[in-house]
Design a protein around this nucleic acid. Sequence first.
DNA 1: CACGCTATTGGCACCGGTGGTCATAACGAC
DNA 2: GTCGTTATGACCACCGGTGCCAATAGCGTG
Lengths: 199, 199
Amino acid sequence: MTTTPARPRAAGRPGATSHAAIEQAAFGLFAERGFAGTTLDDIAAAVGVGRRTLFRYYRSKNDIPWGQFDRTLDDFRRILESTAPELPLWEAVHRGVVRFNEFPGDARPGHRERMELILGTPELQAHSALRYAEWRAVSAEHVADRLRLSPTDLLPTTVGHVSLALALAAYDAWMDDPSRSLAGLVDEAMRGLRTHLAS
Amino acid sequence: MTTTPARPRAAGRPGATSHAAIEQAAFGLFAERGFAGTTLDDIAAAVGVGRRTLFRYYRSKNDIPWGQFDRTLDDFRRILESTAPELPLWEAVHRGVVRFNEFPGDARPGHRERMELILGTPELQAHSALRYAEWRAVSAEHVADRLRLSPTDLLPTTVGHVSLALALAAYDAWMDDPSRSLAGLVDEAMRGLRTHLAS
DNA sequence: CACGCTATTGGCACCGGTGGTCATAACGAC
DNA sequence: GTCGTTATGACCACCGGTGCCAATAGCGTG
């Protein structure tokens, strides 16, 4: 879980590998043989490390494609906190989601490969639900903060679920058409929803 | 998968059990020892069949709590089809979701037990994502039909995701407060969302 | 009533992911 | 060099899931 620690000075035996090395080896194998077709033994061998050691870097095989998601969540939290407070709440959250999905050009291919793997593999789709729950909690907390409600109240959780819904709809569309911008699709999904509900 | 077949005349050897019997035994054990703490051997023993046989009634352990979900999906489809065509689309879908979540008083305790298990068990939360995808597809198809779009277009998938989002937010709230009506919570979530987005 | 037909059962072997334990290796500090 | 610390990797056991196949139990027929 803890990403490759950028410890000031290491105390004991140094790690035999790193998250980056594992992910690189793993993604290579996944691309070659598919996710299910790649065993942990394969990955361990490719990394040059014991199979048991992999579990000290990732909680499970399913966690490997998600990488260091906790960091990503911190980013999202920071983005939401930095939205202009004078914006209507819905728009603040929405812009946060959009910004969260803006990737610099060079990060895009890697991100796309990752998401294709995740969204195209049933085991991983299922596993993602747990990650999404953490993501929703972040938006729900933001909404609860601004409205002085509890994060478990109906409105904050609803906004959390709906924000995720828009992002996932955008991802679905992005999978169909890589040429579109992800952030643009999130925006379009929101416009579609508002129009849909406005009648 | 196929629910206990109501075959007109059986040809070969009769089944040794039924979906109902398996679910009953399984839910009993889950309540007693938890989902993870119950092995398939336990269930098989309780039902009085071989472990191997369980897999002919349910694809996996995770599928047992969901029961006959395909039937439920058919219900949902029928409910959507029977909504008044003069209603604005968003409202038709919304009412469909609300009706789908109205349970007759006597079905409620069982349904609640089932959903508590599902929503409270990480493995099952994850597995549910696959079920939700089928559910979303039903609403997306309905929207696509009425708008003469493809079910994979952005608006239909968005509506599918958002409808599910509202239902799940309602379930979250229902878990916190069993005294509320589920359908009422779906309705309240939708009202909250419309207000939220209207500013 | 015996016979064959047929669908279901259930045992068995096997794979892969996951978790526990423990001896051991490699480093920094003293 | 010794000690404390930390990560490693081997061994083991468990469980879910799958392919294979022989055994089985009703049914309809002759």
